[in-house]
Computed example of a mutant assay.
Amino acid sequence: MVVFLGLPLAVYVVFVISPFVQAAYYSMTDWSGFSASMNFIGVDNYVKLVHNDTFMKALGNNIILVIVLPIVTIILSLILATLVTVGGSSRGQIKGLKNSSFYRVVSFFPYVIPAIIIGIMWTQIYDPSNGLVNGILTGMGFDEFKSFPWLGDERTAMIATMFVIVWGFIGFYMVLFVAAIKGIPAELFEAARIDGAGRVRTLVSITIPLIRDNIQTAYVYMGILALDAFVYMQVMNSGGGPNNSTLVMSQQLFSTAFTKNQFGYSSAMGVVLAAVTLAFSGLVFLVNRLTGGKDDVR
Rank of each mutant, 00 (worst) to 15 (best):
D30I: 06
D30W: 09
D30K: 11
D30P: 06
W31M: 04
W31K: 03
W31E: 04
S32Q: 08
S32T: 14
S32H: 01
S32M: 00
S32E: 03
G33V: 09
G33T: 03
G33Q: 07
G33C: 01
F34L: 12
F34W: 10
F34C: 00
S35L: 12
S35A: 14
A36C: 04
A36I: 08
A36L: 13
S37L: 11
S37W: 03
S37C: 05
S37I: 09
M38L: 14
M38C: 05
M38D: 06
N39Y: 10
F40H: 12
F40K: 11
F40V: 15
I41Q: 10
I41M: 13
I41A: 09
G42W: 12
G42H: 13
G42Q: 12
V43W: 15
V43K: 06
V43H: 04
V43R: 06
D44K: 11
D44C: 02
N45I: 10
Y46A: 08
Y46F: 15
V47C: 02
V47K: 15
V47T: 12
V47E: 12
K48F: 05
K48G: 12
K48L: 11
K48Q: 11
K48V: 03
L49K: 00
L49T: 02
L49C: 02
L49G: 14
V50G: 00
V50E: 01
V50D: 00
H51V: 00
H51F: 01
H51G: 02
H51E: 06
H51N: 13
N52H: 00
N52D: 15
N52T: 02
D53P: 00
D53R: 08
D53W: 03
D53K: 10
D53Q: 07
D53M: 06
T54V: 13
T54Y: 10
T54W: 04
T54L: 11
F55D: 02
F55E: 07
F55L: 15
F55Q: 02
F55N: 03
M56A: 02
M56N: 04
K57V: 14
A58P: 00
A58W: 02
A58V: 04
L59K: 08
G60K: 06
G60P: 03
G60E: 10
G60T: 07
N61M: 07
N61Q: 03
N62S: 09
N62K: 09
